[in-house]
Amino acid sequence: MVGELLCADVKVRALTRDPATARLPREAEVARTDEMPLDGVTSLFLNPAVFWSGLGDLLERARDGGVRRVVMLSSAAALDDDPANAIGAHHLAIERAIEATGLEWTFLRPGEFATNALAWAETIRAGEPVRGPYARARSAPIHERDIAAVAARALLSDELVGAKPVLSGPEALTHPQMVEIIGAAAGIPARFEEITPERARSEMLARPYMREGIVDTLLKVRADAVDRDVEISPEVERITGRPARTFAEWAADHF
């Protein structure tokens, strides 16, 4: 998204945990996330994935410091207001906090990120099967560049103020199909091996960044998606004027 904004000749302040290793374009001003400098900022792009412990005084500082608009990377999970949906509840709470500030806002609600499949890269390159539950579950993974293009439009124009567009890729795929597509892009054999939900849950909880509520929500989403039709959102094309990128395009970009 930084590139999208710079191409529009907009001044960008990009926040990162480590500016020395961020590899951001030199035209962007780079600052540390923990410092959160907001002086001179008029629009803020907010990724709540880094705010599981809460936003602190960020929104108050933004409003008092002259920020006019917040574009939030929310989630399609926010469509589910079940408190047991940990991912949806987290994003909805932040959406409501932003609404309460009186600032202009846009909430982008993508479904599965294609870039999640980068977690399989080492396994595929090692010639091992990608293992996961619910092999027949289907989703429409979205390329991160499409999310960035929509986010840039929300930051730079007024057309999405007050909107909550649900974003998706252009096609429904299972994880076995995604693995096969990655293998074709990488020029190596790749296969998927189904495991039980119980084993998947245990392996997911062993990862340091996973929480029990998130793991259970992710598994429920996969279970509910088995053999179900997937609604393909037209919003990427409607907003950007061009079709959403396919998963094969994403795989060619990354493998």
Score class of each variant (00 low, 15 high):
Ala121Tyr: 13
Arg69Pro: 06
Val67Ser: 03
Gly102Met: 05
Arg136Ile: 09
Ile124Met: 05
His143Leu: 08
Ser157Asn: 11
Phe107His: 13
Ala137Ser: 15
Arg153Ser: 08
Val71Phe: 03
Ala77Pro: 10
Ala154Gly: 08
Ala114Asn: 07
Ala151Trp: 01
Val70Thr: 05
Ala149Gln: 02
Ala77His: 13
Trp105Tyr: 15
Ala78Tyr: 12
Val67Glu: 00
Glu99Phe: 14
Arg131Ile: 02
Ala76Met: 13
Asp82Trp: 10
Gly65Met: 04
Ser74Ala: 07
Gly66Glu: 08
Arg153Ile: 15
Ala140Cys: 06
Leu156Arg: 13
Ala93Met: 08
Gly127Ser: 06
Asn85Met: 03
Arg63Ile: 08
Ala76Ser: 14
Ala151Asp: 03
Val130Met: 02
Val67Asn: 01
Gly102Arg: 03
Ala140Asp: 07
Gly169Arg: 05
Gly169Asp: 06
Ala84Tyr: 11
Ile142Pro: 01
Val130Ala: 02
Ala93Tyr: 04
Ile147Cys: 11
Ala93Trp: 03
Val67Trp: 02
Pro83Lys: 09
Gly88Ala: 10
Ala117Glu: 12
Arg68Thr: 14
Val67Lys: 01
Ser139Arg: 12
Glu112Lys: 10
Leu118Met: 14
Lys164Trp: 12
Pro83Asn: 10
Ala148Gln: 02
Arg153Asp: 13
Ala148Gly: 05
Gly162Pro: 10
Trp105Met: 05
Asn116Lys: 09
Gly127Trp: 00
Leu92Ala: 13
Trp105Arg: 07
Ala86Lys: 05
Trp120Asp: 15
Asp82Asn: 15
Tyr134Leu: 04
Arg96His: 14
Arg69Glu: 10
Leu103Val: 05
Lys164Glu: 13
Leu108Gly: 01
Asp158Gln: 09
Ala93Gly: 10
Leu155Ala: 06
Gly88Lys: 00
Leu79His: 10
Leu73Phe: 15
Ile142Asn: 01
Ala151Tyr: 02
Arg63Asp: 06
Ile147Val: 15
Ala163Thr: 11
Phe113Val: 00
Trp105Val: 00
Asp80Asn: 14
Thr101Pro: 10
Pro110Leu: 01
Ala84Asn: 12
Thr115His: 14
Arg131Trp: 02
